[in-house]
Amino acid sequence: MPDKYGVGEDAYCYPGSTVLRNKLNIRDEPTLGEAEQQLSAIAASNVEFTPPPYSLAYLQNIHRALFADLFEWAGQLRTVGMAKQDTRFCQPEYMEKEADKIFARMAAANWFEGMGRAELIVAVADAYSDINAIHPFREGNGRAQRILFEHLIMNAGFEISWWGIEKDEWISANIAAYNCVLEPMETVFKKCIGQPIQSRP
């Protein structure tokens, strides 16, 4: 039975179901989704900012912190191929190599430090889109990636808030970026990235 990611039957789900195996043994998707939101929101408040360098391992640690109470595989790279509608994410065997390239580019850009807001928006939109195309986890990619990029943006000296971004706008921006159209993602980050932190009174 294919799930929303089109992976079909796999070891992550209960047999004959699209519900991910979980530590609470929840067997229906709406209830599991609610538990995911609540538990990850609580856990997110305990993820402390750390300055760079950042890496795939750093993103894995964030994911583990968010979902360790719910999934045995929290923080582990997925082992199945995944697709969402016409979007096919990076195959598992290539994820680490491709992620390393993205983090190396960010390191070469000095983690975006010293950039003005306009330049930062473009750089962040591009990097976020590249990491999203890898989609390293079976579930919870967006939440883990947003915390990573909060850290990146704060380290670059700017405020960041996701409030005001509608779910449909977020999804559309990710689909467009997958198809190499970055303007919608730049628009999202234009709304999210605020003023320089040091300029607050």
Rank of each mutant, 00 (worst) to 15 (best):
R21K: 15
R146E: 06
D28Y: 02
M1C: 15
I171C: 02
E34H: 15
E186M: 11
W162F: 10
W73N: 11
E150R: 14
Q198S: 15
G142S: 13
L24Y: 13
I165D: 00
S172G: 10
Q38T: 11
F158Y: 15
N141R: 00
L24F: 11
L39P: 08
G16S: 06
D3K: 04
Y14V: 09
F112G: 11
I26N: 12
C180T: 15
I160D: 02
V181L: 13
F89Q: 01
M95F: 00
D28N: 14
A156Q: 03
W111D: 00
N132K: 07
F71H: 09
A99H: 07
L32F: 01
D86E: 07
K97N: 09
E119K: 08
I134T: 09
L59P: 02
D3W: 03
F103T: 12
Y94D: 12
G33I: 02
F149V: 12
E169W: 05
V181P: 00
P2H: 12
I134Y: 05
L70H: 04
A35D: 04
P184V: 01
T87D: 05
I131L: 15
T18D: 14
K190S: 12
H151G: 04
F149Q: 07
L59D: 01
N155S: 14
A144K: 01
A57G: 04
A99R: 03
Y5N: 08
V19C: 11
I175L: 11
L32P: 07
T187S: 13
R27H: 05
L20V: 08
T18R: 06
N110E: 10
A144M: 07
Q60I: 08
A177K: 15
T187L: 08
L70G: 06
M95V: 04
C90Q: 09
E34R: 10
Y14T: 14
P15R: 07
V80R: 11
E183W: 02
M185P: 09
N174M: 15
R117N: 03
F158C: 04
E93W: 06
K84Q: 10
N110K: 12
S161H: 00
D69N: 10
P2C: 06
E183P: 03
I153Y: 00
R21F: 01
C180H: 14
N141D: 01
R146V: 05
K167C: 00
S45V: 10
I42L: 10
Q60T: 04
L120S: 08
A125T: 07
D100E: 09
V80E: 08
E119R: 09
A68N: 04
P136D: 07
